[in-house]
Amino acid sequence: MSSPQEWYNSLPPITKGYGTLCLLFTTAYQLGVLNHYYIALLYGKVFKNFEVWRLFTNFFFLGGFSINFGIRLLMIARYGVQLEQGPFQRRTADFLWMMIFGALSLLALYAIPFFELHFGGISLVFMLLYVWSREFPTANINLYGLVTLKAFYLPWAMLALDVIFGSPILPDLLGIVAGHLYYFLTVLHPLAGGKMILKTPAWVRKIVARWRIGAPAPTRPVAGAGSRAAPAQPERDTGVFRGRAYRLSD
């Protein structure tokens, strides 16, 4: 068994970076070093006082230390890693763009006055979970040792658990909306014969190349989220179970 440091070093860069920032911000809040008010998404502060950092920092806060915080962090560590090392393997720029697009979508949704939400971390994690569930729809998931279900239904099962435990479900729902929007634009619409309208911008690729983040991109397209390349194996699933075949590591 590898040491914690070896496990941490083995994580793919984007997932490792996002999970680390979430842990650091939450730890600083828990120790009293950071007042979460100063990182909250308050559009009045952003536009009137030019506190633009709030557009970014709100996504790094998952609440105080609790069981829910641990679950969200584990979701990043498991599903983010499987996405970045599976469908997005050697496509770091595309994975980074997925996260950026999800954040931008959530910023637009959070701007609706009716919602009155100020932290997007949970929503972004649910966006990540939803995309994972569409990429690995037929994987079997054992939920807390109580029930086994297909991965396609996992976001909805986690949302139902939040209802049972009295947690707000609006952040979960908005994360699912953002995830479906990304998956529709990059996978479902192109597979239906539509034009790819959500390509990874050149500036994102330049950032990844400039800072040498992740492994170099392949010379030929790889099938996966955001790619119109054909699956390596023909799909046999019908109905709701649509996606590509990827082997999950134990």
Rank of each mutant, 00 (worst) to 15 (best):
F152W: 10
F119G: 00
I141S: 02
F115L: 05
G102M: 10
L128N: 04
Y130M: 11
L128V: 02
L161Y: 14
L129K: 02
Y110V: 00
L146W: 10
L107P: 04
W156C: 03
F136H: 02
I141T: 04
P113C: 12
I112P: 09
A157P: 08
F126E: 01
L143K: 04
I141L: 05
M99H: 11
L154F: 11
Y153W: 14
Y144Q: 10
L104F: 15
W132N: 01
V163P: 14
F152K: 06
A139I: 04
F119H: 06
V125C: 06
H118S: 08
L146G: 10
V125H: 04
Y110E: 00
F136E: 00
I112G: 11
L146Q: 12
I100S: 04
G145A: 14
S123V: 00
I112V: 12
G121P: 06
L124Y: 06
L106M: 07
L159R: 12
D162G: 13
T148G: 13
F126V: 01
M99C: 12
F152L: 14
I122V: 10
L159S: 12
A108P: 08
G102V: 07
Y130F: 13
L104M: 15
G120P: 02
F152A: 06
A151K: 03
H118I: 07
D162Y: 11
V147S: 10
L154N: 04
L109C: 02
L129C: 07
A151F: 06
V163H: 15
K150E: 06
A111I: 01
F114H: 10
L104S: 15
A108N: 10
L117C: 02
M99F: 13
A151Y: 04
P155R: 09
V131Y: 06
